[in-house]
Amino acid sequence: MYLTDEFRLKIGLAEQLKGGVIMDVTNAEQALIAEQAGANAVMALERVPSDIRKEGGVARMAPISKIREIMATVSIPVMAKCRIGHFAEASILEALKVDYIDESEVLTMADDVHHVWKHPFKVPFVCGARNLGEALRRIAEGAAMIRTKGEAGSGNIVEAVRHMRTIQKEMRELTVKGKDELVVASKELMAPLELVQWVAEHGELPVPNFSAGGIATPADAALVMQLGAQSVFVGSGIFKSEDPERRARAIVKAATYFNDPVKLLEACEDLGEAMPGLEISKIPAEELMHTRGV
């Protein structure tokens, strides 16, 4: 593992963000609503994923003035997204001193072959993954937090569930393999042997593993937490719902009391309408976000 001081500090912040909700916000007003609802961090972006999907075009890093306005408004950590492989956007976000960079499939890819080589950055990165191979490749590149991709902006939890179950299952399988079999697993996962061995020994990723993409209700948050997510990212699910303030509070509660059905029931009362959802099979293949950046 890359347990340098720098990498430990990056993982250290991810540890502090466990058991909570990171909310997508597009302006200072939304950031304040998120903070007051109990978000443990906000993700500053220009458009939430469901709008990116609707409006099309190239989705890029958010305007600096927007991110700065959000950083000036809240005391919790502020994350921002860069395009996959766009190390120049990443370096600008680092200079801006955002607390975490999400190298995200929600934005248009800048490089359809490479991700950012993240180790030299002082700011930590989170990356999406659908399976263990993707997760370990991102960690090899220097990601200090993984989030399962789900399908952003869909309001449909099915991909988030698939990705979390896949990673958990693939990790469990490694724990019973022999040393020689791990070499084969490394080949099949297309992931460094050193990281495969680490997962086999510990039964978990060497960095925190959160869930994202399609979480629209407190029950969705509780579902992925019970499946092993250590926190949740909520994108369009909050500010595309009828009553963002209430829903934000409810999802925060659900992430904390994910194992307590009575508390979950309380969280679900009088929430108003959730965001509209999409059937994944009705989304044209070229518009799917989770297939970007493998």
Binding site: E15, Q16, L17, K18, G19, G20, E35, Q36, A37, G38, A39, N40, A41, S75, I76, P77, V252, K253, T256, K263
Partner: peptide, 15 residues
């Protein structure tokens, strides 16, 4: 523990 004090405070006071 460590984490976000605003988040913990909210949950402590509300519940």
């Amino acid at each position: 523990p460590g984490g976000e004090s605003t988040t913990m405070l909210k949950l402590l006071l509300e519940d």
